[in-house]
């Protein structure tokens, strides 16, 4: 990969409606947090997708190591009792 020369990188999270989760939309370049917000607005919400935006410096995010995927995630594979599949959904409930 070539060196990124276009300012600092920021991760963008947008909220589609009040109260909803912020969802990762992508990333932008910007030299400061105000510019990051503006660039995020222009890049990810220009067709009315959002009501609120978070921007976070990319290097402030700690990510899990893909090489440790087995250690991190495999132990969860064979424990179906952790899933609420044995409960009957009450009638009319859309989510528990």
């Amino acid at each position: 990969m070539t060196q990124d020369t276009q300012l600092r990188s920021w991760e963008v999270f947008t909220q589609t409606r009040s109260g909803a989760n912020y969802i990762h939309a992508g990333s932008v370049h910007a030299s400061d947090r105000n510019m990051a917000l503006q660039n995020a607005r222009d890049t990810y919400t220009r067709r009315g997708e959002g009501t609120s935006i978070w921007v976070v410096p990319t290097d402030a995010i700690t990510a899990s190591d893909p090489n440790e995927k087995e250690m991190f995630f495999d132990p969860a594979n064979d424990k179906i009792y952790r899933l609420p599949t044995f409960y009957t959904m009450p009638e009319g409930a859309k989510a528990i």
Binding site: L7, H29, N39, D42, T43
Partner: peptide, 11 residues
């Protein structure tokens, strides 16, 4: 000058 600015100006 960068993609983000390109989008801003066309917006």
């Amino acid at each position: 000058p960068i993609l983000e600015e390109d989008l801003a100006l066309t917006n």
